[in-house]
C-alpha cells in the first residue's frame, strides 16, 4: 500500500489549484471530522509522516487521497511560520 512508503519530502511539485481545492475538501471531510486541525510545522517531518501513516489507515484513505494529502501538508511547511 502507498501509505507504508508514502512519505513525501520537500521538493515535490506544487499543487495545482484544482488539486489544492480537492486537498482542502479532503482534509475537512476526512481529518477535521474526527479531530481538530494540526499544523505540520509543529512536528518533525518523520513524526508527521508516522502520524499520516496511522491516520491514513484510520480514515480509510485511498492511495491517491493519501498522496494528495501528504503533498498538501508538505506544502504547508513552505508557508510562513505562525505567530506565537
Amino acid at each position: 500500500m502507498l501509505w507504508t512508503t508514502g512519505a513525501i519530502t520537500a521538493g515535490e511539485a506544487p499543487l495545482s489549484p484544482a488539486e489544492l481545492k480537492r486537498a482542502v475538501k479532503l482534509d475537512r471531510q476526512k481529518c477535521w471530522r474526527c479531530h481538530k486541525p494540526h499544523d505540520p510545522r509543529s512536528y518533525a517531518r518523520d513524526e508527521w509522516n508516522e502520524w499520516m501513516t496511522k491516520m491514513s489507515r484510520k480514515a480509510r484513505l485511498k492511495p491517491s487521497e493519501d498522496t494528495l494529502l501528504r503533498r498538501y501538508f508538505e506544502q504547508t511547511r513552505g508557508e510562513p511560520e505562525p505567530v506565537k
Binding site: 489549484p17 482542502v24 486541525p37 499544523d39 506544502q75 504547508t76 513552505g78 508557508e79 505562525p82 505567530v83
Partner: peptide, 20 residues
C-alpha cells in the same frame, strides 16, 4: 512553495491567529 493553501493557513490575520 508559493501556492496558497487552506484559508486557515494563509498568512492572513485570521489564518495566522488560527495557526497560533
Amino acid at each position: 512553495h508559493t501556492t496558497k493553501l487552506n484559508p486557515c493557513i494563509k498568512p492572513t490575520p485570521l489564518g495566522l491567529a488560527l495557526l497560533a
